[in-house]
Amino acid sequence: MTTSPEQSDLIDDIQGRLESQGWQAESGEGWRWVDHTYQNDDAMLRVRYLPNVNVIRFDFESEEHLAELSISFDGSPDRVLGLITDSQSSLSEATWRDFIAALIELSPRILSLAGESSDGEVIAELDDGIAALREIDWE
């Protein structure tokens, strides 16, 4: 996998930012991609990023629920990463709605949402994805 100097810098920046916040490298450490996890009291969080694609993959997994988001960004992922790292220690099923509301306020393009549902449907359309994020109810 080849990366441009700008992409290498972005990968280094994302890895450094996550690791400075206590995230652990899974398979991306020392490589040219990002694959980091963070465990809080309620959930396992995971961030993945591949070069040359302006998409952050964010997973939330608790004992009861799983959500997998693909979120695009323009230019810099700083706002999306900032929201994730600001929420990392308190993100839980109880705080999920507030997290999603804050994510939607950032206006990133949510490319897909996958999670537990009766039919296992992956929502790939922007309007459907945002509607699903607003309606997600884990209570």
Rank of each mutant, 00 (worst) to 15 (best):
F99G: 12
L10V: 01
S70W: 02
E61T: 08
D127G: 01
R97P: 03
G82F: 05
V122I: 01
H65F: 13
L133C: 10
L113C: 08
A102H: 08
E63P: 12
I84D: 00
R97L: 15
G22M: 06
V53H: 15
V47G: 08
G82V: 02
D137H: 14
N54I: 01
S89N: 09
I14P: 03
Y49W: 06
F99Y: 10
D9I: 02
S92T: 09
A43T: 01
E125S: 00
N52W: 07
A43R: 00
T85S: 11
E63L: 12
R48V: 09
T85P: 04
I14Y: 01
E116I: 04
A67S: 14
F73H: 10
D86I: 06
Q39L: 03
V122D: 00
V47Q: 00
S112D: 15
L45T: 04
W138A: 15
R17V: 06
S118A: 13
W33L: 06
E139N: 13
W138Q: 05
P108S: 08
S87V: 11
S112W: 05
E121G: 06
R57G: 07
Y49Q: 08
L103A: 07
I84A: 07
H65S: 05
S76R: 15
W23L: 06
L111G: 10
M1V: 15
N40I: 04
V34T: 06
T2C: 15
E93W: 09
D42C: 12
D13P: 10
D59C: 04
I110Q: 03
D119T: 02
E105K: 06
H36G: 11
R97V: 05
Q7E: 03
L126Y: 13
E135K: 10
S62N: 12
S27M: 02
D137V: 15
E61P: 06
S62A: 05
R134M: 12
